[in-house]
Design a protein around this nucleic acid. Sequence first.
DNA 1: CAATTTTCATTTGTCAGACAATTAAACGTC
DNA 2: GACGTTTAATTGTCTGACAAATGAAAATTG
Lengths: 244, 244
Amino acid sequence: MKIDPSSSADLSAQIAKAIRDAIISGALPVDERLPSEAELAEQFDVSRPTVREALKRLAAQSLIRTQRGATGGAFVNRLKFEDAYGQQITTSTLLLSMNAVSFATACEARYALERACAPLSAQRRSADHLATMRAEAHRQSQPGLTDEAFCASDVAFHRALVDAADNPVLSYQLAGAVEAMQPLMNMITFSARSREKIIGLHQMIADAIEAQDAGAADANLAALATYTQELAQGVIAARDKAAR
Amino acid sequence: MKIDPSSSADLSAQIAKAIRDAIISGALPVDERLPSEAELAEQFDVSRPTVREALKRLAAQSLIRTQRGATGGAFVNRLKFEDAYGQQITTSTLLLSMNAVSFATACEARYALERACAPLSAQRRSADHLATMRAEAHRQSQPGLTDEAFCASDVAFHRALVDAADNPVLSYQLAGAVEAMQPLMNMITFSARSREKIIGLHQMIADAIEAQDAGAADANLAALATYTQELAQGVIAARDKAAR
DNA sequence: CAATTTTCATTTGTCAGACAATTAAACGTC
DNA sequence: GACGTTTAATTGTCTGACAAATGAAAATTG
């Protein structure tokens, strides 16, 4: 187990890659203990700080966890959906904010994916998920709610809708698309009238899900997508007007 | 800029979080140069190796890049879709392999998402994407193709289908769902007959996309989803029979 | 003066060695 | 056997040092 010192890449990056590949290939099963840092340093013929940098890289991806003490060490970590959610949301958010992705593009992607969930959600929705959707729709109708709180509740509503599909893989994929939109949504100022319309659509969606009517759920989601795009275009038009 | 040394978390993790938050919030814009390691060490009141561990954590998430030399240092990195694809695929693949996600669940998610793309792909498909789909379908019909090469071509076909929607956010989200399925698909042995049926559906999908017929594309994708599930159930039944 | 080469300061990459903090097992003691 | 105590192993952190890369400044040369 040696590392090519002539390669251009950092040694710690090479070592991290070697270990990562071993984990992905299954050579290192979940909960397996890696050799101690001192042993890894000897095996790869590098110093301990270099090994540590490699391990921190893996820890940043939740591929390993470390524990101090006599029986401690670095262990292959079972990547949990909940950990992956966080990474997914961070990555998606940065992708949107750093690449000048238009509101229209992000919004289109989000609603396309959400509509893919709707039939499954209608079929499998639990009382719990329905109750969450109802509660969030109600919260959105509270007077005095800030735009940001309104958006946060919006996200919670849509997450419940997605989670109702009872497919963790779908929930994971959608988490990024839905949550990453929030900063973009926060740029919209919601008038009393626009809130009313959105809440109405939310209630219709909840009704459709409760009635297990996939067609109605899809139609109302489509309407919500269209209306959201319209609102955003209004904001963009106003901004351009101010900049002119 | 200090770090709480009494906290249970590692200092390097705390420092990484502080810098990560600054990047996400926009306080550190893209291409901004971070202070040198020595300066960061002084600011956070830790040693240089600790700072370096923190920076490696951020580098593992593609949030920064480093450069040696007089004008070098660590710079906030513009997260590119291409970089995010890789992380997304790695994470999705590990999620599936480490969490005993059933083939049925993963397959359902994948085809639900893909069907969400189909209408957009039908509307916007370019000659390029169509040509790729045709080429992959043709490759799949070559005799002597290994099961793995068949699966790889299958992935390429579906990626072209997704990319045809011309929405980078959708492509990014779907990359994980489609590619992460490949290891699971590789467990299936494709008989000549099953290949024939899949290729037939691929051609029908390509036809529908070319004709910009979203309904037909959706119907054929649904048929492909059903057939894939059937094939997998056959494999699972055979495996259970052998284990008994 | 212009072009080229050399020198140099800055910064990251790597190493060696040390000590602190944590943890569980081994060991004694009652 | 139950309960402290010691001990060994391991990660976390620090100090100091040198190597390697790299661009800028200085010196040299035509």
